[in-house]
Write a protein that binds this DNA or RNA. Structure first.
Lengths: 327, 327
DNA sequence: AAAGCTATTGTAAACGTTTACGTTAAGTGC
DNA sequence: GCACTTAACGTAAACGTTTACAATAGCTTT
């Protein structure tokens, strides 16, 4: 059996209280001699503390649960790096729970799991909550924060890029390059997608461009969504496209190639994400670049009550997938 | 305060034992009427079980810890999907602990964390253990299994692709296409890298090709490693390269483009991984494709004692980054 | 020398469950 | 009507910690 503090107490002759105090480094409540003896015996026995028991009695854990929606794109790693970095600095552990992709059952289950483990905070990444999810979260007193999704509800904390601005800037950039028939590809019907659509539409409107419904090709941020959108755009003579993700942009590019065409001559594309994919693609993809690490860091700040930036700014990174358009 | 079974017991008039039995669905030890009443009150109070307390008394958890080394490449998602899939089927939860990249302190710490939580099993993904890590793992009686790393030690369980075969096949393929000056780029000095080097060298030898030391460009499987390797290969007039990862292959490709050259005319490349990166790249990258999902599934099987395939086979996927070479 | 303080340690309760064992009452077979 | 079984429930210990409170001894202060 695994040794416990009882074993150490028995072997040293001290009470379990003293052993516990030494092990927890409660300074000033034990002598140096006692400490040395206890630590020595602990080492001899190969003692390892039982986190479960500790957390049970302390009624708190140092664990942040990250529930992630497996969006078919690749942004999540950067965010998790940021979370990990900030959490480590705050002496918190990070556990990650996968919730499938838009899978309501798994998603709800993951929240329950996190709550049942009495984690210190819950981060919901790219998750679109339903009524039941929100009820569950608000009823528990566990702090939570949505990441990379902005629910547009003052009551509910979230950290994400400014989706409206991201799409607005991308669209304006294409307009500045002379494009007038501009698409938006790969967005979904949820919050993130809607916000990007609003930014896109606002940019069109501000520049007196009458958009068409079909210029918006819905999807799930995936590579496949990009591939599917290419042909419609060609048929509509769209010349520039804002892609909802790097994956979607890459899909558009691939579809162009399959049709013997190339970016940016066949189509100018600016992608929203700015991951390594943009560099790997040929030609490299111009992007509205999200600061994923920052989003991760801020989301942890948000959890622990520090005032965090809820809308992280994005930046334009010019690469080679956009060309000037002349009528 | 969060309601507990005591509260339910008080309100229903039953003892905590009965309440516990109902909640744990210990069939045959309570009447239907009792069950209904308990469940009703539990719902009223918003009861949620305390996993910590449960695990403490049961002395077992249904949690698999995955400790992942953040290798600067992108294979991990597929494996985690597989782990998740199999774990869910076995009613196990999955928590993921990040261990940095070749960071011995973090790595050791992560193992300790997992052990202190008395998880039911530990999966070590792309981790190279040191002496202390192995001692820790073997001394604890918690099952563990290395994933995507084969320690070449019968005693230590692991599930990975057949690295030797992967590199051997990649090399043979290039030879079959007429290449004679063949490089290996991006591997590290650890187990995975060494095994791939052996496969590569064996293929050269079996085909009576005298390799040169400089044909092997070491790295860390990263994009940058690929970029750095391009120039040396050109100078050595190497015509075909086995890339240690998709990222490395993409780096080689990018470096070629920066020099105004293209794959496969400037260099034939076959990549080991076969992720979506291979499709996104232009031209698409021929690869030795790993079955990541399968690796994930088998690693969980390995943990729970089912006899699992320890060496998962790889397959060649021909795309557009290799051309025939004629002297 | 009395009183007070401090450093060190011990006692025991508490955290929220599960479960071995005991008890009761009702049912069954004869 | 008796012995036996069984369904349903309760009692209490256990899991491995932390910590409030108490106790002791030695020291300081006056």
């Amino acid at each position: 059996m695994k040794p416990t503090i009882k074993d150490i107490a028995a072997k040293t002759g001290f009470s379990i209280a003293t052993v516990s105090r030494v092990l927890a480094e409660k300074r000033g409540s034990y002598s140096d001699k006692t400490r040395d003896r206890v630590l020595q015996v602990a080492k001899e026995l190969g003692y390892r503390k039982n986190t479960l028991a500790m957390e049970l009695v302390k009624k708190k854990t140092d664990v942040i649960a990250v529930i992630v929606n497996v969006t078919p794109t690749n942004f999540s790693n950067g965010i998790i790096d940021g979370i990990q970095e900030r959490a480590t600095a705050l002496r918190q552990q990070v556990i990650i729970l996968y919730a499938g992709n838009r899978n309501h059952v798994l998603q709800h289950q993951a929240i329950i799991t996190a709550l049942e483990r009495s984690v210190s905070g819950i981060l919901l990444m790219a998750i679109e909550p339903d009524e039941a999810d929100l009820r569950l979260l608000t009823e528990a007193k566990t702090p939570f924060c949505f990441v990379s999704v902005n629910l547009a509800d003052e009551q509910i904390k979230s950290v994400s890029s400014d989706n409206y601005q991201a799409a607005y800037q991308a669209t304006e950039y294409l307009i500045a390059q002379g494009h007038r028939r501009i698409g938006l590809a790969g967005i979904d019907q949820y919050h993130t997608g809607s916000q990007r659509r609003s930014g896109y539409q606002a940019a069109l409107k501000d520049n007196h461009i009458q958009g068409k419904a079909a210029w918006i090709q819905m999807g799930d941020y995936s590579y496949q969504a990009g591939q599917a959108a290419f042909k419609p755009y060609r048929q509509m003579a769209v010349t520039g496209v804002v892609a909802a993700s790097d994956m979607t942009a890459a899909g558009l590019q691939k579809a162009a190639q399959i049709n013997g065409l190339e970016l940016p001559t066949a189509l100018s594309v600016v992608s929203i994400d700015g991951t390594l994919i943009c560099d790997i693609a040929t030609p490299a993809l111009t992007s509205i670049t999200q600061n994923f690490t920052r989003i991760g860091i801020e989301s942890v700040n948000c959890l622990v009550g520090e005032n965090a930036t809820q809308l992280v700014p994005v930046t334009l990174t010019e690469r080679d997938s956009v060309m000037k358009h002349v009528e």
